[in-house]
């Protein structure tokens, strides 16, 4: 293996050098979520009250409702649709997928319902009808995100991973 590899490398590299290092400038503009290529922003619906856009990195937080509510009821199932929206602000169509960790788990697009035991579920609000767990988002298109909660008497937390792959 060693002999073969060095022989091949020599042919491709033409033998002028065995390694080279050069620094080149890379500019990465990190923007707040609303302006990113994979844009995350308020849905414009009533439940975007639970989408916290106060920092550069947004979060979902079911706490104050703005109408006196301080959280979900104990021992209850709560569904909150259209909490935030994902927009494809890039230049290619993408397949959007959701996954969760901690107390959060993802459901198929368009199928939000509370989990059967204490926890949080998340789903894209619409199904694109192609039978898989992703949602195709054209350039400039948006899809909302729904949540559901089965609460006991303890607070819940999790991490939502939003993925987007060019088609």
């Amino acid at each position: 293996m060693g002999a073969l590899a060095s022989g091949t490398a020599a042919v491709i590299g033409t033998g002028a050098f065995s390694s080279v290092e050069a620094d080149r400038q890379v500019d990465v503009q990190v923007t707040e979520d609303a302006n990113a290529y994979l844009g995350l922003d308020n849905s414009g619906e009533a439940n975007d009250m639970y989408f916290d856009t106060s920092g550069d990195e947004y979060a979902v937080d079911f706490v104050e409702s703005g109408n006196g509510g301080n959280g979900v009821n104990p021992n209850a199932d709560t569904v909150a649709e259209d909490v935030f929206t994902i927009t494809n602000q890039g230049t290619q169509p993408v397949e959007v997928s959701l996954s969760g960790s901690g107390d959060l788990s993802a459901q198929l697009p368009g199928s939000i319902s509370a989990p059967s035991s204490d926890g949080i579920t998340v789903a894209l609000a619409e199904d694109d009808g192609d039978g898989d767990a992703t949602y195709e988002l054209g350039v400039g298109e948006s899809v909302n995100v729904d949540f559901a909660i089965n609460s006991g008497t303890s607070n819940l937390s999790g991490t939502l991973t939003i993925g987007a792959e060019a088609r």
């Binding site: 979520d33 990113a36 290529y37 994979l38 995350l40 990195e57 947004y58 979060a59 979902v60 937080d61 079911f62 706490v63 409702s65 006196g68 509510g69 301080n70 959280g71 979900v72 009821n73 104990p74 209850a76 709560t78 602000q89 890039g90 230049t91 290619q92 993408v94 969760g100 901690g102 107390d103 959060l104 949080i120 998340v122 949540f147 909660i149 609460s151 006991g152 008497t153 303890s154 607070n155 819940l156 937390s157 999790g158 991490t159 939502l160 991973t161 939003i162 993925g163 987007a164 792959e165 060019a166």
Partner: peptide
Amino acid sequence: TGAFTSAEADRSVGVTVADDDQAYLAL
């Protein structure tokens, strides 16, 4: 040349369980 080929973002999700008389559906 596309603006992005893939992207992945982790965001936190928190749920506060309120007292029944302080919750969204206050009883």
